[in-house]
Design a protein around this nucleic acid. Sequence first.
DNA 1: TTTTCAAACTTGTATTTACAAGTTACATTC
DNA 2: GAATGTAACTTGTAAATACAAGTTTGAAAA
Lengths: 238, 238
Amino acid sequence: MAETNKIPQYKKLYEVLRRHILSGIYEEGSLLPSENELCAVHHTTRPTVRHALEALVQDGFITKKQGKGSIVRKPPQDIGILSIAATSTAIGKPYLRTQILQKPQIKRWAEPFPFDLSEAEKDSGCIYMERLRFVNGQPVFYDINQLPNINLPRFTSRTFENKSLFDILRIHYQIEVKGGEQKLKALKANRTIGKLLNIKEGDPVLYVERKLFTNREGFNIYSTIYFNSEKHAIFGSF
Amino acid sequence: MAETNKIPQYKKLYEVLRRHILSGIYEEGSLLPSENELCAVHHTTRPTVRHALEALVQDGFITKKQGKGSIVRKPPQDIGILSIAATSTAIGKPYLRTQILQKPQIKRWAEPFPFDLSEAEKDSGCIYMERLRFVNGQPVFYDINQLPNINLPRFTSRTFENKSLFDILRIHYQIEVKGGEQKLKALKANRTIGKLLNIKEGDPVLYVERKLFTNREGFNIYSTIYFNSEKHAIFGSF
DNA sequence: TTTTCAAACTTGTATTTACAAGTTACATTC
DNA sequence: GAATGTAACTTGTAAATACAAGTTTGAAAA
């Protein structure tokens, strides 16, 4: 028994089940094997299985019901609450095109900065990028992302057009978002924002400032978002 | 031993610790008693203590560090992402006054209703209430709450002025919010909203529709919120 | 004085066992 | 056939125990 790589059993089980749910082996609405079955299959005990299931509940992959079982849920989108839903009619998979206005480049942090930066973050400078996102051809989402330039080889030369910033961070750099905080306001669009989002100056826009914590100590991602909520709404589930 | 009211020990311990954190008995940044100490004091065992602490971590009241202990955090506001933060200057404890515009009363559900209602919810009618909340004397927060009128004895006669709706549901009825979904938009204030929030007609307001799931099957809480983000922002952490 | 290291804490992971409580299915009874 | 109840599932709560791993402290050694 030397092959245990220090990764706890409950986490390994979590990963297995999560993978199975995402890959469709367990269908949405169906029941996971019972806790005792999972014990038998994975050669472990109920508290360990329950620990893994608890994490799945926490991350929204299942709901549990006493006497019934663990029900598979629709896997939740990206972490962090922000996806887009149409207000009037429910569009199944909104056609979302992303245009990079400013490719990732190394800059100084914007001043003044809406969040407190650590010394390490200040010293290392930041990687800056701007994106504009379209739903059905209309611009709805303008966001500025800044992250510290700490140990991210080749980052600025990667392609972002069709990939999520977060996917790239997770897959290439093992950086995962663990939580965050955000401030939301409704503002009048100024001229620049109005032009970008194709609305009139003075029209209301949703404004969000976010700080996302990651599994890397002291590595946070900062975003500023302007959202055209004329025809769409920001939708979140938690 | 007849006084156990069916409430699990770990929940009771959670309530005790939560109360103590909120009342300042444990200061922000300080350490909670160690798990073994809590075991001794509350006559229980580590798994139970850990279960309670896990819930506190989940709700943002503490963070844990292996080898160190449980660190008390700044207690997060109301449940579920919505609290208020001043944008310009950080106000330590924003003076928040709540005015009940419409005491809880039994009504029919509003039509049209932004979310799908179950048959049970439709049949039972709803408890309806409106509140207006002030920070430093200025109205910032107008919210309409609707919840199904199912098995909530004495609910409409309770006092809400200084207590959170969610605290009352949790403590008196063992109803806990387990998750939810919400839509956010920026709108122009109409005349009514403008008057309530003391802003000009046409000024931007933050508009939120929320559906909160609870541990009671089929019991959801629905809120509509208008937020004056002129001087404040909605703050959330996740 | 400074460094090193070991002991005594802390939380993290895991097993084993037991019973309570909610759900379902089926056999019994009316 | 319809209602009832029981048995066999499910998850929920709780205890007792053991060891692993990270942090702090202070004594011993350099």
